[in-house]
Design a protein around this nucleic acid. Sequence first.
DNA 1: CGCCGTATTGACAATCCTCAAGTAAGGTGG
DNA 2: CCACCTTACTTGAGGATTGTCAATACGGCG
Lengths: 247, 247
Amino acid sequence: METGQRRTPCQSCPLRALERFRDFTPAELEFVARFKIGELHLPAGNNFLIENAESANLYTVLGGWAFRYKVLQDGRRQILNFALSGDLVGLQGTLMGEMQHSVEALTPVRLCVFQRERILEVYRNFPSLAFDLTWLAAREERMLDENLLSVGRRSALERAAYLLVFLHVRARALCPGRLEKVFLPISQQHVADTLGLSIVHTNKTLRKLAERNLIRWHGRSCEVLDEDGLRKVAGWYDEIEMHRPFI
Amino acid sequence: METGQRRTPCQSCPLRALERFRDFTPAELEFVARFKIGELHLPAGNNFLIENAESANLYTVLGGWAFRYKVLQDGRRQILNFALSGDLVGLQGTLMGEMQHSVEALTPVRLCVFQRERILEVYRNFPSLAFDLTWLAAREERMLDENLLSVGRRSALERAAYLLVFLHVRARALCPGRLEKVFLPISQQHVADTLGLSIVHTNKTLRKLAERNLIRWHGRSCEVLDEDGLRKVAGWYDEIEMHRPFI
DNA sequence: CGCCGTATTGACAATCCTCAAGTAAGGTGG
DNA sequence: CCACCTTACTTGAGGATTGTCAATACGGCG
């Protein structure tokens, strides 16, 4: 685990360049730059937030992938959602004191670290950023709603297709320049734990998608060959996503 | 549908009397009283927020039960969560323009109506209330996390027991005075759609709980006879809930 | 009384899980 | 360079869970 001083000044934040993210005013930018107390570079597999622990900090993913999950006593694991660049992680713990889920780095990950104690300053001094915090929480809720619909009511095949489109859309939005293939850095075990399926049945389901030439699997990563085909299987209906905020 | 002028002044809000809710400062109270533009009394079954519609307003449940849900094209329905007194409904639509789920009154319901356009005033003028909005969003997320864990990884019996304890705890918290029985105003169809099970299998599962004298079913409502027994079946671990905010 | 919504039950089928064994790719030490 | 790990993906067989279909019971209500 490598912790360190600020590496990426907010003023030249690479995320800001992406069309997807909203612009900051100079004052907002300056505030956020002071709000950020450091940067954390972690290897894949690191659990940087742990259930039942007081969460010391709030993080924004600056690069890499992570996932939120919960486990039952006997080890059954449910992945709740994934966090990609620009996503906020640890807000629940920041607001309510104790984490009720864990977060693990899926790939090597770079995190902006914000101090928990200073969250109130955001509300007192920057209403627009406070609004963005609520917006991000509402967006997370929306993703969870959709995921719950999947796990509760979609068939295994629909579920798998839906998840892959979902992740593919989110991943593509972060690398707008290159039109080359996007690989999703997940194993079949991650898919299983996200969809609430066993690893064996997940494998057989993904196999069907591969046989239809919709995806291809390469060890710990998934290549999406035909997003539209997956959408059909998933019953995906598009939604417009506007410029999103981030902190 | 009965819509009307203000019936319950915020100053004498019945929820405020409950130990569970945090106190407002006089200034906050006055602001909220002006922020509330009316009150809506709706019969059971009324869908007062609808997926894909622009949501005109933001609501707080003042009395009664409602539930959030989504449906797939072919009619499969997933209930996402329930809303009881003090719960905020419609925030997603308020912040992001369009609802991506519907909300239906489960019992006759009384709603405080807040004007969507004025949400920014909260952020500009009352940081403490803005914080509460984020807090409520994070709380909803937390409940969804737990529900997703249930649907994804718990067995039918565990799931059912968990849901009933969850609802019983929430319902009991709202009527602290009376120690009499609390009835959950749901049908087995609601349970099925919450747990992602078929109605038949739900019935058989609930039957098992009834045979163990943990619950009793009365038409459209469920009586919890033995909460501790249910907790054991569910694998429930307690969490501390502090004084919660509400708007 | 008959109608309707809800709960209940049995029989059978589909989905999904577990167990078990195998393959393929990559890394490591000799 | 090869033997030998480890990790992850595959596949088949059999069993448990859950779904579908169909019929019945029961109570409230016009």
